[in-house]
Computed example of a mutant assay.
Amino acid sequence: MNTKRLDQLFAFYKEDPSDPFVIYGIATEYASVEKWEEAIKYYEILLKEHETYTGTYYHAAYAYAENGQSDKAEETYKTGLKICQQEKDHHAFKELQSAYTNFQLEEDDEW
C-alpha cells in the first residue's frame, strides 16, 4: 500500500466524499495489501451510493470472497451482472461473468 497515495486519496475524499473514483481508489489501496475489512468498507459505500459504478462489483465480490463472505460475494456478482447489462457496459459484464464463473468453480471445489 502506498501510504502517500492513500493520504492524498483521503484528502480528496475529505474535499468531496461523493466522488466514486476517489472512494474506489481508497478501497483498491486497502485491497492491494489484503486489508479486506477496510477495502470492503469503501466498496460498500460505492455499492450503496454509486450503484452504476460497474467496476466496483468485480473487486467488491473478490474482497468478500477473500474475507470468507461467499454469500455476499455471489450476491455481488449477480447484482453486478444485472447492473452491467443495464448500463450496457459489455467489457465489465464479460470480466464479471468470467470472475463469477471462476468463483463458482472454486466454491464447487471446496465441497
Rank of each mutant, 00 (worst) to 15 (best):
T76G: 04
Y64V: 01
K4Q: 14
N2V: 02
K4S: 09
Y43A: 03
T76D: 06
A11P: 00
Y24L: 08
L46W: 03
D19N: 10
V22K: 01
D19G: 12
Y58S: 11
E110T: 12
T54P: 00
E74I: 05
E107T: 12
W111Y: 13
E110A: 11
Y57S: 00
A99D: 11
Y53A: 03
D16Q: 05
S32I: 13
Q86I: 10
Y24A: 06
S18R: 15
A99R: 04
E51C: 09
T3Q: 15
T76R: 02
T28F: 12
E38C: 04
K82A: 12
A92Q: 12
Q104N: 07
A31N: 13
L46R: 00
L46C: 03
K88I: 11
A11D: 13
T76M: 01
G25L: 01
E49L: 07
V22L: 00
A11S: 08
D108A: 14
G68I: 02
F103K: 00
V33T: 14
I40W: 00
A65I: 04
S32F: 09
E106I: 04
T28Y: 04
K82H: 09
S18V: 15
H59P: 01
D109G: 06
L96G: 04
E74V: 05
W36H: 08
I40S: 00
E29G: 04
D89Q: 08
D7V: 07
G80E: 10
W36G: 00
E75K: 12
A60P: 00
K78N: 11
Y100T: 07
A65H: 09
T101E: 15
A60K: 02
D89N: 07
Q85C: 03
A65E: 11
L6W: 11
E87D: 05
A61S: 09
D89C: 00
E107L: 12
Q104R: 15
P20L: 02
G55Y: 07
T54W: 02
A31Y: 15
L9E: 06
K82Y: 11
D108C: 08
Q8P: 07
E37A: 08
K14Y: 14
S32W: 09
I45V: 02
Q97M: 15
Y77W: 08
D108P: 04
E75P: 06
Y64R: 08
Q69F: 09
Q85P: 04
